[in-house]
Design a protein around this nucleic acid. Structure first.
Lengths: 140, 140
DNA sequence: TGTTAATAGTTTGACATCAAACTCTATTGC
DNA sequence: GCAATAGAGTTTGATGTCAAACTATTAACA
């Protein structure tokens, strides 16, 4: 247990969190979506329309992965693609009405995940944790 | 930046760490392996032969994923499968000589990853971080 | 002791993910 | 202005990953 590298510990956490999120989405009637899709939708809810590159930067996946994920969200009808009037290379991804309708469920799910994962962790510890992870994220 | 859930922060770290690991393995002449394969090999180096189920528990992936990962390691010749004399359901996975030969490279890579990711993080902070992540891991 | 339930792995099919090569547009520098 | 370079996305092919259904073996238990 002792010499486990933090990266692998992180992997285990992510595995469990993904299972949790998939399960919760299904329970809320959101079918056929992976956690990555939910992550994209969540950021669009918080920040408004984003270019593909912006989504890629935020969720840290290859740009070809973003293309595939967004295509699925378009197919299902949760987002739409608009062209940026200032730069025709850019596609802006925006929530549709159907996509926005998911917001209440998403807030509940995020809160539930937070409640679960942070059980027994104080606010100070939470802050410490986020700061340290941010530092490591910046290092890599 | 503020309201980013820790899970997504973790995802970004993992993405970068995986790129780092793939790159380093390639630089050490270890070709065709994903970080997950490396993780399995690393645990076998540290703990000796393990059953499939044990590997799955440690690296936190679905058992069918373990089957696929181990099959690849067998095909390449890094590990071999032995049957447990006490329980014929169990397959024990052990490093071959070729697999053991990777150990020096793996130690170097792990150390390099640690040095990179923990730059500017004190030993105390490191311990705090691991403790908090372990708590969250246990919560999920 | 025989039926039931649990455990270890595999198979199959679907899909997320990545890397590399490619297209198209914008920017930069001379 | 024009060529070269960088940036935004897509396509393609390969592969890691998961979930569900399945086989085989062991354990539980009545």
């Amino acid at each position: 247990m002792k010499k486990d590298h933090i990266i692998f510990l992180i992997g285990r956490i992510q595995y469990k969190a993904n299972r949790f999120l998939s399960q919760e989405m299904k329970a809320h009637g959101i079918k056929g979506l992976a956690p990555s899709h939910g992550e994209i939708l969540g950021y669009l809810m918080a920040r408004g329309p984003l270019p593909m590159s912006g989504i890629g930067r935020i969720i840290a996946k290859d740009k070809s992965t973003i293309t595939a994920l967004v295509n699925k969200l378009i197919r299902i009808g949760y987002v739409e693609k608009k062209s940026d009037p200032a730069d025709s290379r850019i596609s802006l991804i925006a929530l549709t009405r159907k996509g926005m309708a998911l917001k209440p469920s998403f807030l509940l799910i995020a809160q539930k995940l937070r409640a679960h994962s942070y059980k027994g962790v104080s606010d100070d510890e939470r802050e410490t944790l986020v700061n340290l992870l941010n530092k490591i994220n910046a290092n890599l």
